[in-house]
Amino acid sequence: MSASTSLRAALTGALTENGTLTDPRWRSAAEAVPRELFAGSYFERVPGSVPARYRPVRQDDDGWLRGVYTDQTLITQLDGRTRPDDVEAGTDIEGSPSSSSTLPSLVLRMWQQLGVRPGQRVLEIGTGTGYSAALGAHRLGDGNLTSIEYDPVIGSAAESAIRAAGYAPRLVIGDGLRGDPDGGAYDRLISTCSVRYIPVPWLHQVKRGGKILVPLSGWSDASGPALLTMTGPGTATGRFLPGRTSFLLARTHDRPHRPPLALLPGAERPSLIDPGIIGTWTGSWVAQLAAPSAERMGAGSEQILWDVSTGSQSRTTSGPGGGWTVVQRGPVRLWDQVETAVRSWQAAGEPHQKNFGITITAGRQRVWIGAEDGPGWDLPI
């Protein structure tokens, strides 16, 4: 048995043992698809680096193959242009991840959550390295899968890797947020990039009763996976799933460029909530729903929200005699919005994201807690 086959079997066995892989057909796909074809090189973060720096890992480096078969995300592009092979061996560079091979446990969990059945047609948004598409083609057959990639360089590399692995799904270079350029009626849609809202073309390319699985995120980097069922052309309803799912934002949904942060004076008052709560997984999600145009920075009691488009800011600190203080500036009172949302969530018992749902109608996409008539917020469509 080759080293790669042995490592692949060990990873698949571990994912089965820990409960990630529950469907034997997806286990067969995981055992069959050689991940090393999709990560011939990748970036490894330099430990402790702030801002983050990355060094390339290539096939002739010690630990390359073991890294491929570790359940981790492998960064394959920085800043929308730099790939590992572009960086001189032994050096490291600063950058922001723009493409990756997502950790196998998450990819396989999402494919299982999608609930696809034999013979159904699936549209995948975000081919990336092609590893997920190869898993889908193995399980569903080449003719039932279409995968769309925005970046032509990444898409070309993915096509080569997928063909080398022995699969031939339909691959498209284009803006996946516009759906399949040839149209079509799909039974399922799965997105391997996050979006701020559900793109309207998706809602007209998935059949009534079909499903969409997509990570919703935003400019504060909070994230939640939603599983939607189509109720009609352009309308859907669904729930958020348990677990923590995080993907890179689709490039056309990403935050605007901002200049260096300059904290400015503003109106000061006591905060009615502990600012640290918006640093928790679901708390940050609620804050992002309430202030979708803001980026969140900071930690603990020192939280900063900044809306670049309006110049609005809020920042919190611990008060000298206990409690917390917030300073707000600009036309949008960001902390007021967050505070109101968090208090509604607290009144509902601080439920996890799996107790949130989403309803999509013409012109409106609303996330709610508990039931459709519960507290809720509109997504920024």
Rank of each mutant, 00 (worst) to 15 (best):
S2R: 11
T5L: 14
T16E: 07
E17W: 10
G19T: 06
P24A: 14
R27F: 02
L37W: 01
L37N: 02
R45N: 08
G48T: 04
P51I: 06
A52K: 12
V57K: 01
W64F: 08
L65I: 04
V68F: 04
L74Y: 02
Q77V: 06
V87P: 02
E88I: 10
T91R: 07
I93V: 15
S98N: 09
S100F: 04
S101D: 11
S105I: 09
G115D: 15
R117K: 12
P118G: 04
V122L: 13
L123N: 00
I125E: 03
I125D: 04
S132M: 07
A134H: 00
H138D: 03
D142Q: 06
T146A: 15
S147K: 00
P152N: 10
S160Y: 09
A164I: 11
V172Y: 07
V172T: 01
G179P: 04
Y186I: 08
Y186D: 00
S191I: 08
C193N: 05
P199K: 02
P201K: 00
V206R: 01
P225F: 13
A226G: 06
A226D: 00
T229C: 10
G238R: 03
F240I: 12
L241S: 05
R258T: 06
P260M: 11
D274S: 05
T280V: 06
T280G: 10
S284C: 09
W285F: 13
A290W: 03
A294G: 08
G298I: 00
I304W: 09
W306F: 13
T310C: 05
T317S: 15
T325D: 10
V327P: 09
P331N: 07
A347F: 00
G349C: 04
W368C: 01
